[in-house]
Design a protein around this nucleic acid. Structure first.
Lengths: 339, 339
DNA sequence: CTGAAAGCGCTAACAA
DNA sequence: TTGTTAGCGCTTTCAG
């Protein structure tokens, strides 16, 4: 642990500022906290002293005295595979950038499900996904700490959440393929331990059902979101006696891998296979044929999550709980064709 | 800002524990901080009370009173493109996981170069890369805050750093190609604003020079690490009147894109082109032909960085500065052939 | 080995 | 509009 103050040169405190500017400590505090009641002249004196002394208030003292915290903890379950996904980084990026702007301290917790978080001192918590770590969420809730869940719809707990409408997105994607005349539509799932992947599978099924297309179990390939498993799935798919004419893939990264396999097998996209991905990962634009995909508003989800949490943190009364689904958008590019 | 304590039920403090266990506050504090001098019997009483009351010390009070902080700030420059790289996520993962284990609070700062960090209260800072934000580092240093730089070798500042031997890695890669008989070796660079990409280019040049192979400027393709630019580079490369027989690519992601382009053009890897990447990104394993690459110890770099920083934070005396290069490892797989 | 007392730097009533 | 006075919850001399 580092000593914050060196023994000889104590760092400047609010008292030094008060002395230099000739007002009381309280007044300095008021200026710092932007109380409107301070006389302009004093404000100026204090501000000048602050600048001259390069004073920065001690956050610890502030938090101790006020009982307030502007620390936001972001909890990411460290399950196998999260770290090879497009979305975690997008989420971190979105949350990190907004916290930076809002002057919130972002505490990153990569937890496994069983460890318990040190909740004391954090002002609010954002749970990114919920994979085996519901207990951590329940702990936070029962400790009365403002909490938010993103990328996961939680309907059985009193907590705000903001998730992507994965099922709707998947349904749209498959409906689109159907509208193009496809009947033999496969699906390469993500890791079904995640809510998102499960919902996409559900959406796929719904779309087929609504259109009276019989579901063929052999057209569903379960994976863990990895490129490796996407590759095996694609290889099997192309080898089927009755191969599908289209496939809806649960992530762009996997969809790209399917395209690679196709290229290696001498298949043409979209002539031999129409493909729709999910994510709107920029990588999808770079291939020879641009990938049609479902855009999910990750950055928006991250930002809304932070804003909503901040609302909680600032409201004296327990804020109203909101559970929202963010819509997706089908981005039609070149990887599908009419049949 | 959230109130940490509800008005009615004050959270349990050290005083409650002292009262319940019948000793002084001081003794409780000693037990918490594992002072050896407490009588075993008292220790037990205190520990029992702590458990019964579910007491957790307030980190703010601790920090305020002791002047110590176990907060580690991770500063990542938010420059265009970092967030599409393999390495940032690896770094976050490595650092996050270790901090979790070491009970250090990880504060994530995605900064732009010009904003100044709120350094007050952090116990130590890790700078991941240094891109336009040297001033932030200098500020930290002159504020006397323990700091570390990772993924960037800094030789003109009194600061410990731990970087990957990118130049050596690149040289090895190119030497390997040369040993296979290649003379016409191209290089697709990364974003030369990063030290890593610049060093890899340097290593490429060194290897050619040492082997008396004349450098051909038209064989060097500058990119920003994006797949898009890798694609254009690859397309140009294949169209050259005298195309190279091998290419050293500054990242695996880009190398994979080169392979995609090759497949689309009906070229075979490694028959028509030998490829070496950089990163040992797991994606490199999934293609039809596994990518030969240079493995860089990202997780190790992250972990060493945290450990080194902790050493700083714990030593009263200014710790000795270390500047280290971590070696890379050439991972030979299937994407290169003899000529 | 233990405890009393003095802060750490700031905020928040309450007066003035 | 401003200042006085208590703390916030813990650590740390310094006596005992």
């Amino acid at each position: 642990m580092t000593r914050l103050k060196k023994t000889p040169s104590r760092s400047v405190s609010i008292e030094d500022v008060a002395r230099l500017s000739g007002v009381s400590i309280t007044t300095v505090s008021r200026v710092i906290n932007k109380f409107p009641s301070v006389k302009e002249k004093n404000r100026q004196k204090v501000l000048a002293a602050v600048k001259q002394l390069k004073f920065e208030p001690s956050v610890f003292a502030q938090r101790l005295a006020s009982g307030k915290s502007n620390i936001v903890a972001l909890v990411i379950p460290r399950y196998e595979g999260v770290f090879y996904s497009f979305y975690v980084l997008e989420l971190i990026r979105g949350i990190g950038t907004l916290c930076e702007a809002l002057k919130l301290d972002l505490l990153l917790h990569l937890t496994d499900a069983c460890s318990s978080l040190n909740l004391k001192g954090v002002g609010g918590i954002i749970f990114a996904d919920l994979i085996g770590n519901r207990r951590q969420l329940e702990d936070a809730l029962s400790a009365g700490i403002p909490a938010m869940v993103i990328n996961n719809f939680v309907d059985d707990l009193q907590v705000s959440c903001i998730a992507v409408d994965n099922q709707g997105g998947a349904t749209n994607a498959v409906n689109y393929l159907i509208s193009l005349g496809h009947k033999k539509i496969a699906h390469i799932t993500g890791d079904l331990v995640t809510q998102a992947a499960a919902a996409r599978l559900e959406g796929y099924k719904k779309a087929l059902e609504k259109n009276n297309i019989q579901l063929r179990p052999q057209y569903i390939f379960k994976t863990d979101y990895s490129r490796g498993q996407a590759r095996s799935a694609a290889e099997k798919l192309f080898k089927m006696e009755e191969p599908p004419s289209a496939v809806f893939v649960a992530s762009d990264a996997m969809a790209l891998e399917v395209m690679n396999v196709a290229a290696e097998l001498g298949k043409n996209i979209p002539r031999d296979l129409s493909i729709v991905g999910f994510d709107d990962n920029p990588s999808g634009l770079y291939g020879q044929v641009a990938l049609t995909t479902v855009r999910q508003p990750l950055i928006k989800m991250a930002e809304e999550g932070v804003k909503e949490l901040e609302r909680f943190m600032n409201s004296r009364a327990p804020a109203k709980i909101k559970k929202v689904f963010l819509p997706t958008e089908l981005v039609i590019r070149e990887s599908c064709r009419n049949v």
